[in-house]
Design a protein around this nucleic acid. Structure first.
Length: 203
DNA sequence: CATGGGATTGACT
DNA sequence: GTCAATCCCATGC
């Protein structure tokens, strides 16, 4: 499998290209790691993005260097993990919405008390809890910081994906900027049209 | 200084 | 299907 984290040049591209390219890549924090199976793109030009309001103390990281982690708290409870994209100053990011557990499943289960494997990381707030990522990771590098993203392992090399509308937002909800890996049981609901979990898929 | 909203989740009817 | 929990911070007075 790929040994080196994705380089800054990977993130320094249009966010609509980076988001699907991140599917199948590996997020690692401590001893836990998972394969990305769902992402969403956000860009300063549309009102659902936090960077839409411009540079504030809250969003300064979003407008920072590509390859930086943007972590924020949602609804006062959940930490959501994003990867800053495009050249510095633009204000674009990819939200990591779901993972498939790869390593450290025992640590994940210790942090999340759920029975089913596919429930460990099938949501943006769930995967941060499972990996043990919190606001301390905000603003750190995804290349040499505590949270890193690696290239696709062999079995995910040619992962296919489907596109759908983003989830849980009230503005610009119609944009088809959500990307889900085909063949994973760990994509969060609701599944976009055309996606079936692997367990129910026909060969 | 007060207010309100949010890229969610899990528990409950 | 509905609804509350609970933190950060932008905005407005």
């Amino acid at each position: 499998m790929s040994a080196a984290p994705l380089a800054a040049a990977f993130y320094d591209r249009p966010v609509l290209k980076v988001a699907p390219d991140l599917l199948g890549c590996v997020v690692a924090h401590g001893d836990a790691a998972g394969v990305i199976v769902e992402t969403e793109a956000y860009h300063f030009s549309e009102p659902a993005a936090h960077s839409f309001v411009g540079v504030t103390p809250r969003t300064v990281v979003l407008h920072g260097a590509p390859g930086t982690a943007y972590v924020y708290r949602s609804y006062g409870i959940h930490a959501l993990l994003n990867a800053v994209c495009e050249p510095e100053g633009v204000g674009a990011a990819v939200l990591i919405r779901a993972l498939e557990p790869l390593r450290g499943e025992g640590a994940m289960r210790a942090r999340r008390k759920v029975a089913r494997w596919e429930d460990l990381c099938n949501g943006p707030g769930k995967l941060t809890q499972a990996l043990g990522v919190d606001l301390e990771a905000h603003g750190t590098s995804l290349i040499d910081g505590p949270v890193r993203i690696f290239g696709r392992p062999q079995r995910w090399h040619a992962v296919a994906h489907v596109v759908g509308p983003r989830i849980g937002i009230t503005k610009a909800a119609e944009l088809p900027w959500r990307f889900c890996a085909l063949g994973s049981r760990c994509v969060s609901k609701p599944w976009p049209p055309g996606l079936r979990p692997a367990a129910a898929a026909r060969s």
